[in-house]
Design a protein around this nucleic acid. Structure first.
Lengths: 206, 206, 206, 206
DNA sequence: GATGAATGAGCCTTCATTCAT
DNA sequence: TATGAATGAAGGCTCATTCAT
């Protein structure tokens, strides 16, 4: 049902099977959802035994938390780097942020899907810290939008909500993107950037 | 975790506990997800016994399918009615469609959330028929967008993808809407309509 | 897996669905065994509702008991009649008893199979009375054998055990008989009679 | 209902509880039948937990298959050995085969009963392979009978069917044998051998 | 680290039976 | 008679987790 290649969000950590386990968990959660995937599934995908999982991870929910944390860290780092490397104006910054976001999705689609769908099953501190990280990511976009509004580049009357909506639309791309789809990665980024700028009511031409 | 009031997507069907069961399932799936909710949960919420559930529904997955089918039917009916009652121009039609969509979310938020998150757990014919229904709903929006492009009201260069993106953004509202939030239902609809028109590159002022 | 035609051990009793239910039970028990068949199965086969079963039969085990009782009664009656109608000598009587037994199997194969396999699930009085009936049937054979030994027609040194063995071999026919098999009903009876006489050490030629 | 001592068909396999589980299953199926016995019953008899059963056996039906396979293997091995060790003539061979069969029943009565009564609940490959093994066992008897007919030692006109009937009668012994019964093991074998030879129409004295 | 065995709770579903109509 | 709804127990099986080795 899911033809995407096995996820490799986590590169070898030098700690035995750890990377394999985290990537296996990502795949398992991506395929069946958090509650639909079992620790046995994860073990099988990771090529190790069920009980050995617990040498690396204390529980299923912490496994989800760890996977989501890494995905979010990676996305956040890419976004920050993209924005830093961009020009000083809001339009450039937004454009680069969108590009980076799309690149992340293309390279780590499963991670993005799991991030979107399974956060709700985190609890307590794990949930809180992930939500905080996400808010930070969202703040980056809100910052860009605020700057654009100040500069007169964006005319949306609802800057913060619009920033969130842009983020939502971007995230949703992970739900339908296919590597062999109609649009190349570049075209996809271009399209999404245009949607974002339009939604923010940046005067044409983009 | 979920402070929303109990869902009442399904009104009394005149067949004993059927409505109670479907609504209970909606709530349960909305709270814990399809795999996270148990038939015992559903039974408890419906105020009946576990085994009696099976006098109304043949399996957990068919229960999900039934719930999703009803939600989709209701949404589709509202959209069709709204578009039919609207003026002849694409902008009016889009506006009314957005308004109807938001109204559905406000009244059946849980149904919308479950619809979005749990379709993936349908299989076989249930999945196929629901996907078909969704495609029909999407076609309504694509039709409006195509009309708008033809009329010169929308200038987006990617009409079909843009229609989908609009739909995505609308659906996402169910993920964060709170009845006691900052915006009234009307304001929310207004805002979303503006996002949609902007994204479709309708010339301002809207 | 089981190509035998639906059993019709019980002819219309003039009491609504009773015959249909008893025959359905026979089929169900024959196909899946007593514990493998459910009252729902029986109801479905009988073309009535589950709960209506209980208007005719007080419980599943009494249903089994009733079915077995009727099967045994029919078999016993046929045997008695056959022996009565036969000549006075043991060989003729045995021959006719075997013929009648085989005829019963051919006409009521499922009943015979169920009789053999499911008696063990009877309990209490039902079990006791069926065992008593069977012992009576067995006594008929033992009587014939005893007579034959007295007459010098049978020379087996273990008359009673031999009678039981003959009965066992006969009953086992129900386990493999197929209407479209190699032997006609008559040939089958002939063969079994010869086995019986040989086993009882009747002097050849038979 | 069943006063026979606990079965010990399977000796310690060196793999934890495996033997205990297989023997427990044999007992459980022997007492209540395949569908009448629950995995919980088996676990209780084996002195382990329900869930731990599944560390040894993948399903209830595979458990039945495994038990039946072992029983059949043991019986087949004994028969082969007995026939090999016997003299060259058909009568000796048959006599030894019967003796070995009876010895198996005496030592593994429950296994024989379960073998006879519960094969029908096997399905697919398990069923097919067991049927094949049984046919092989039957072929041993058919071979002996054919040899006897060729030698003029047996005069039955239906050699193959007679071999099957002999086998049936032997198997049925498991249904009524009691360790404290009238006949010793040796007498039982003697009696059955005489029945078999008589049925095959071997000229007296046996 | 790594394994197989073990545990107790829980899963979805079906059971025989009863009840109200 | 006949039905659909209801019940509580039990069915086979899987779960996340732990333990001994």
């Amino acid at each position: 049902m899911n033809a995407r290649s096995p996820a490799t969000l986590v590169a070898d950590t030098g700690r035995g099977n750890e990377a394999a386990i985290l990537n296996a968990a990502l795949d398992a959660f991506g395929t069946a959802g958090f509650h639909g995937a079992s620790m046995r599934d994860v073990a099988k995908r990771a090529g190790t035994s069920l009980s050995n999982l617990y040498n690396y991870v204390p529980s299923k929910s912490r496994l989800l938390a760890e996977v989501l944390r890494r995905a979010n860290d990676e996305l956040a780092a890419r976004l920050r780097a993209a924005v830093d490397d961009a020009g000083d104006d809001a339009v450039s910054r937004l454009r680069e942020a969108v590009r980076a976001y799309i690149r992340f999705i293309v390279e780590h689609q499963v991670a993005m899907v799991v991030s979107t769908n399974e956060v709700r099953y985190l609890t307590g501190a794990d949930r809180a810290s992930l939500v905080a990280e996400r808010d930070a990511t969202q703040a980056v976009f809100e910052g860009i939008v605020a700057q654009g509004v100040a500069e007169g580049a964006f005319r949306t009357p609802y800057p913060d909500d619009a920033a969130r909506t842009v983020l939502t639309a971007l995230g949703a791309v992970a739900g339908w993107y296919r590597p062999d789809g109609r649009l190349s990665r570049g075209q996809l980024a271009e399209q999404q950037a245009r949607y974002a700028l339009a939604l923010l009511e940046a005067p044409l031409p983009h």
